[in-house]
């Protein structure tokens, strides 16, 4: 069963490049990624550019509306994800607890829909 593990945090809480906290933070992510690729759980993973680079579109009465970013008041934003193959929700929870951002942000775990043929 596949679970997408969405990593949410606020810019303010994330270790910033140039600070002492940054290198161990990146190292922890590399370790985590290595762990899930070695234990066979990793399906896919990506880190996202900051939310300031985002564009949101919607169709209003068929007319394309393009806006800059999501709403500014959103404190915690999606920074990346892991798509993991896990036996059960408990296995997914246990693995996600090791994602470095879980220390100061949140990980949303969502089962991925399996379409019937």
């Amino acid at each position: 069963m596949q679970y997408i593990c969405l990593i949410y945090s606020s810019d303010a809480a994330d270790p910033q490049p140039g600070t002492a906290e940054f290198p161990p933070f990146i190292q922890a992510y590399q370790d985590f990624t290595k762990e899930v690729s070695e234990n066979g759980m990793l399906v896919h993973a990506d880190a996202l550019q900051p939310v300031s680079t985002a564009t949101t579109i919607t169709l209003e009465n068929g007319k394309l509306e393009v806006t800059d970013g999501p709403f500014a008041e959103t404190k915690e934003t999606l920074g990346g994800y892991y798509l993991l193959e896990c036996e059960s929700l408990d296995a997914a929870i246990e693995q996600c607890a090791k994602i470095p951002t879980a220390q100061h942000g949140r990980i949303e775990i969502r089962p991925v829909v399996v379409w019937d043929d």
Binding site: M1, Y3, E87, S88, L89, D90, I109, R110, P111
Partner: peptide, 8 residues
């Protein structure tokens, strides 16, 4: 949710 998220 129990079914979809596979809560063991």
């Amino acid at each position: 949710k129990i079914l979809a998220a596979n809560i063991p």
